[in-house]
Write a protein that binds this DNA or RNA. Structure first.
Lengths: 342, 342
DNA sequence: ATGAAAGCGCTAACAG
DNA sequence: CTGTTAGCGCTTTCAT
């Protein structure tokens, strides 16, 4: 491959350590020899071998981003946020897709760990997160993004929004807009964030004196597609809602589709509110009102946090107390809800 | 970190080379000592240090996937295809997002090259691809996926569909369905594949005795969003088309949106045909008919090709002749076109 | 200010 | 069949 330190040293008539010194700018080198070495490096297109540096230093300047499914629209902007701040700080990022599989996640972590990845950012598949905890115990910087369980709080660093409050506010807004029978398109209960969204919904109902009706809770079993059937079912029953609150945008889109098939007009006959604000939500017809998550920032903050962890570890050989970064959500009003009723 | 070869050797009372031998299964080792070593490796949770192996062997078991924009929906399934076959063959993949920027692409390649990435799969930003050619010249396995220029053919390995034929067939189908005034939503001309799609359209027109009308070609200037204005413009003119053929699905979706805003009914009043078959295209209303690209396979074939290149290089120290893998496209009929007219 | 030398963890001759 | 040894390319004392 390219020239090595040794080659440069020979060409410049100095020792490898001198070349290393001018490369790292960590120790003083006579200005003349410095320039000479620099000139030769230039001429030979010298690039230090990153692998050798990693072996020697025990660090790799790479971060590993683990996501459960790259086709899930929320992870593209998260990845972008991570990449941006990583690259700005001189880190590369390796992206691993676990396919929502706990084993793949574990294998991924093990494999990357032995490549001396400096830090992990993980949106975890469901499971006990044992390998993630073991990372943290072994003082390897890590942060959970978007997905976490209640038990992880204060035990692992986390970046997320406040799902409870977001759903609470959204539901309250729906009620203030005059909606009374609010159906919920509920995601897999195994995910803590879905549970939190449901909890926010229930609390808002309760605070506004509306009785919680279990029949209005539509539970996903396999995938978002379930809501086609579920929507048609409830719309054909006596229990018709006047609005659907979907716990994610894809669910909202399936619901809108089903509603169209039944010839309901949105928002004239019935409203739909999503959650996430994936890019898709503004291109569909009618444009979806939704609760926005700052995905890019989630990724950016996560990356910054691990990088800070890495720095702290290098300086004091310890990791910080795990902190939970809670980013701001936002209610985005477009055209799938009626304007406020009076 | 974990135990090293040396530690295991000490624990087992043998030399490091013996341990290395049982690890690599490349040479015979006395069965008893082999088992003993294996047992100790197990007990100590020994994991060979991949960085040291890379340094020693000059290979990293890592592929680098370079994409111009992770938010572009076509790259998620490509990435998935790449990851699947890479992992199946014992490779990791590092994903780099160039933000459609030629410089970022070059930097990315330089940086990865010095980490001894074993092969590159690149969906290139626009530009001269100098750094990609230099990879190939230096015998580093590389393949272009989805994006390439005419001049790259036979000079670099490529995986793609036949854009000319796909557009030719789609246009012919439109004509056979009774459409006559076919507007084209044309992507940035700098991309060869868009030019090819336009060429296919023109040839089909010509072969069916329909005159090419330049006024029907809507040219994107900045982004897909341009087509909102462009659509409204042409629909308010004397030159109204009876169908739109978009050179990518996002363009089709913007067009459908504009059409809805003008109260046109799809497909009753006017048809829309997309290109790509991104996941999104089947969730919108009405579901979009489109030309499907096998993105997952594009990625999978690309990965397999570089891996084969790597093997050949290891065995014979040379790269193969560059081959152009052309994968099958498919016309997907959904609900945005009228059924065949007679 | 600079060089010599050890060593990061592993592999691969070369001896025995 | 197994141990010794010399690096891979780089950083970092320790001398000078």
């Amino acid at each position: 491959m390219g020239a090595s330190l040794k080659d440069i040293a020979a060409l410049a008539g100095v020792s490898v350590s001198t070349v290393s010194r001018v490369l790292n700018e960590k120790a003083y080198v006579n200005e003349e020899t410095r320039e000479k070495v620099l000139r030769i490096m230039e001429r030979e297109h010298f690039q230090p071998n990153a692998i050798a540096q990693s072996l020697k230093n025990g660090i790799s300047n790479t971060l590993c981003l683990i996501i459960p499914n790259i086709q899930n629209l929320i992870f593209a902007p998260i990845a972008r946020g991570v990449e941006d701040v990583a690259r700005k700080n001189g880190y590369n990022v390796i992206l691993c897709d676990t396919y929502e599989n706990e084993n793949t996640e574990r294998e991924c972590i093990e494999m990357m760990r032995m490549r001396w990845v400096d830090g992990f950012i993980v949106a975890s598949a469901v499971g006990d997160k044992k390998s993630i905890y073991s990372l943290w115990e072994d003082k390897i910087p890590v942060i959970l993004v978007n997905r976490f369980d209640e038990k992880d709080i204060n035990r692992l660093p986390i970046v997320s929004i406040d799902n409870y409050t977001a759903a609470y506010e959204a539901t309250s807004f729906l009620i203030q807009s005059g909606y009374r029978r609010i159906a919920v398109a509920m995601g897999a209960k195994i995910h803590y964030f879905y549970q939190e969204r449901l909890r926010g919904y229930r609390q808002a109902l309760s605070d506004h004196g509306i009785k919680y009706d279990e029949k209005l809770i539509l539970q996903e079993e396999h995938s978002s597609k379930d809501f086609n059937r579920l929507t048609k079912q409830i719309m054909s029953s006596e229990e018709k809602p006047d609005v659907f609150f979907a716990t994610s945008d894809p669910k909202a889109i399936v619901i809108m589709h089903a509603l169209h098939e039944m010839n309901y007009h949105i928002p004239g006959d019935i409203g739909v509110l999503g959650f996430d604000n994936v890019e898709l939500s503004s291109v569909i017809e009618p444009e979806l009102s939704t609760v926005s998550q700052p995905f890019y920032d989630l990724g950016a903050v996560a990356a910054q946090d691990v990088i800070d962890q890495i720095r702290l570890k290098n300086e004091k050989n310890r990791l910080p107390e795990p902190i939970h970064h809670i980013l701001k959500h936002e209610l985005i009003l477009r055209h799938s809800l009626k304007a406020e009723k009076d």
